[in-house]
Amino acid sequence: AQASVVANQLIPINTYLTLVMMRSEVVTPVGIPAEDIPRLVSMQVNRAVPLGTTLMPDMVKGYA
């Protein structure tokens, strides 16, 4: 199964992502692939992302 990117903490709206904020986990539904974690660093979330939430492409500015 493919691992997705999951929030490792509460990520406030407009926060620039860093490695410590994200982890990879096999979840349903599938979100942003874990292999894209390096690409996500320094990208901004466009909403608050609670701890344990799967990151979806529409949550990250400029990802989709």
Rank of each mutant, 00 (worst) to 15 (best):
V5E: 02
T18P: 00
D36S: 14
V5K: 01
M21F: 04
V30F: 08
N8K: 08
N14C: 03
Y16H: 10
I13F: 08
L55H: 01
A3S: 12
S4D: 00
M56N: 05
L51T: 10
A1C: 04
D36W: 14
A48I: 14
K61I: 14
S42V: 04
K61H: 15
Q44T: 08
M21N: 06
I32L: 07
I11V: 05
A48D: 14
P33A: 12
P29G: 04
Q2I: 09
G52I: 02
A64M: 15
G31E: 01
I11E: 00
Y16K: 07
T15H: 07
P33L: 14
D36M: 09
V60D: 00
I11P: 01
E35K: 07
A3G: 12
A1H: 11
T54I: 11
G62W: 08
V49E: 01
T15L: 04
R23M: 07
Q9T: 15
V45E: 01
L51G: 06
R39F: 05
N14L: 07
S4W: 02
I11H: 00
T18R: 05
Q44N: 07
T53K: 11
T54P: 07
A34S: 14
P29C: 03
A48P: 09
I13E: 15
E35T: 09
Q9L: 12
L10H: 15
G31Y: 02
P33V: 06
V6P: 01
V45C: 03
L17F: 03
D58Q: 13
V27Q: 07
L55D: 00
N14D: 15
M21Q: 12
Q2P: 13
V60R: 00
V41M: 06
M43H: 10
M56F: 11
P50M: 07
V49K: 00
Q2W: 10
S24Q: 06
A1R: 06
E35M: 06
I11L: 08
K61M: 07
D36G: 11
M56R: 12
A7V: 06
I32E: 00
L19I: 14
P50N: 09
Y63F: 10
P12L: 11
V49G: 01
M43C: 03
A34L: 05
P33G: 05
T28N: 11
A7Y: 01
G31W: 02
N8P: 02
P50D: 11
N46C: 03
I32R: 01
E25I: 05
V45I: 13
N46T: 14
K61D: 13
E25N: 09
G52M: 09
P57Q: 10
M21A: 06
T18Y: 04
V41N: 05
L17T: 00
R23D: 06
T54G: 03
V26S: 08
D36C: 04
A3Y: 14
R47L: 13
I37E: 03
M22W: 01
T53N: 07
S42Y: 06
G52L: 05
Q2D: 08
M21G: 03
Q2Y: 08
P12W: 04
R23S: 06
A3M: 13
R39C: 04
M59W: 12
I13C: 03
A34Y: 07
N8E: 08
M59E: 03
M56W: 13
L17A: 00
V26C: 03
N8T: 13
R47A: 11
A7C: 03
A34T: 10
K61Q: 15
T53Q: 15
